[in-house]
Every structure is written in C-alpha cells, then in structure tokens.
C-alpha cells in the first residue's frame, strides 16, 4: 500500500432503508483492502455524527423531508465527490411511490384515518422534520458527481465502483452489476 494519505469517505442514508449500507457490507473481507485505502468520516459504520471535509460522500436514499435537504447540502459542501448510491438516491425509489398521492392524504392515512390509530392527529413537534410535497432524487437538490443504481447495488457493484473510482479510472460496471432493481 502507498504512503499517500487515505481517502476520507462519509456515508449517509436519507429517505432510504439502509439496504445500500447493508449491501456495502456485502463486500465482505474486501473491506480490509478498502480500509487500507480509505478512512471513514461521518457514517453509520463509524457513528461519527459531525461531518468534516471529505474526499468522497456516498448518499443512500432520496430527499423526503427538510432534514434530508440539510444533510444532503452538508454532504455536498464537505465532500469533493458526491455519489448517489442506490435506487432511492438515483430516482426516489420506493419512498417516491407516495408521490402518487397528495401529502395530506399520506399524513391523514398514517396519523388520522388509518387502521389502529390511537390519539389521531398529525404530529407537529418542531423536532420532527417536515415532509416535502414529494420525494425527490438527490440530483434534483444538489449537484451529483456519480450514480450507482440498484435496489440495492450489489456488494460487487459497490466494490467495482469504489476500486475504479479510487484508482482514478472511468467507471465501467460489468453487465450483471448494472441493474435498477
């Protein structure tokens, strides 16, 4: 391994299911090779809460609420290279299926008129991030440098992507590693 400083990587999940992060862990023992090259900043893997300047930011999930917007902007500010990781970050994914309904209908169904609800009422605590009208892919909010689709992208696809990116190569996924589902 080289003596050059390690690449600093941050990851986060916005409106996602953490499935992409789980898939990330599916690179299995290759993570040992990876940590020779990178060190992690803010990420569910490190539990670091405060984001510092990074070389690479991996964003899972789409943008569904005000907090997602703030976190995404912070990632864009701090990360030299920003990656949309997985279907939800790329096109909104499953959470964006709520876009078929007015927001009021979604909240009413969830908190007022749905089945098994006690103390009906839409929560209005300022601690709870407000929902956007629609769920958006992250490229509609910030500039995104790379996209890796998949629900989730496979561990192999993530591995291919990271090794090629870190090696400064153009990204070229084998056919079986490019999928949207």
């Amino acid at each position: 391994m080289s003596d050059s400083p390690k690449i600093r990587v941050a990851t986060t999940s916005l409106a996602g299911c953490f499935g992409c992060h789980m898939s990330f862990l599916d690179i299995d023992e290759r993570i040992l090779d990876l940590v020779d090259l990178v060190e992690f900043d803010r990420s569910p893997i490190t539990d670091i809460k405060q984001l510092g300047p990074c070389d690479l930011g991996l964003v899972e999930g789409g943008v569904a609420n005000a907090e997602n917007v703030e976190v995404l902007r912070e990632f864009r500010r701090q990360c030299k290279v920003l990656v949309a990781l997985g279907a939800c970050a790329v096109n909104g994914g499953i959470p964006a299926m709520r876009n078929a309904f007015p927001l009021a209908d979604c909240l009413t169904e969830s908190y007022v008129g749905g089945i098994g609800i006690h103390n009906p009422g839409v929560p209005n605590d300022p601690e709870i991030p407000l929902l956007l009208n629609k769920v958006h892919p992250i490229h509609e909010v910030v500039k995104v440098d790379y996209f890796l689709p998949g629900c989730p992208p496979s561990g192999d696809a993530i591995w291919t992507f990271l090794t090629e990116l870190l090696a400064g190569q153009a990204i070229s996924l084998p056919y079986t590693q490019l999928h949207y589902d």
């Binding site: 096109n91 909104g92 299926m97 490229h139 890796l148 490019l178 999928h179 949207y180 589902d181």
Partner: peptide, 24 residues
Amino acid sequence: ICPACEKTGACQLQAVAYYVGMLE
C-alpha cells in the same frame, strides 16, 4: 420504480437502458 415493478429484469426499457449504459 423498478424495485416495485413485477416486470423488472424482463423489461425492455430497463434492458435498453442497460445496453446504452444509463446510470441515472
């Protein structure tokens, strides 16, 4: 929304998009 579509994997829109290397 490919992950929620019964046709996924056997969809020509997907397949052509894969063929031309559409990532996003």
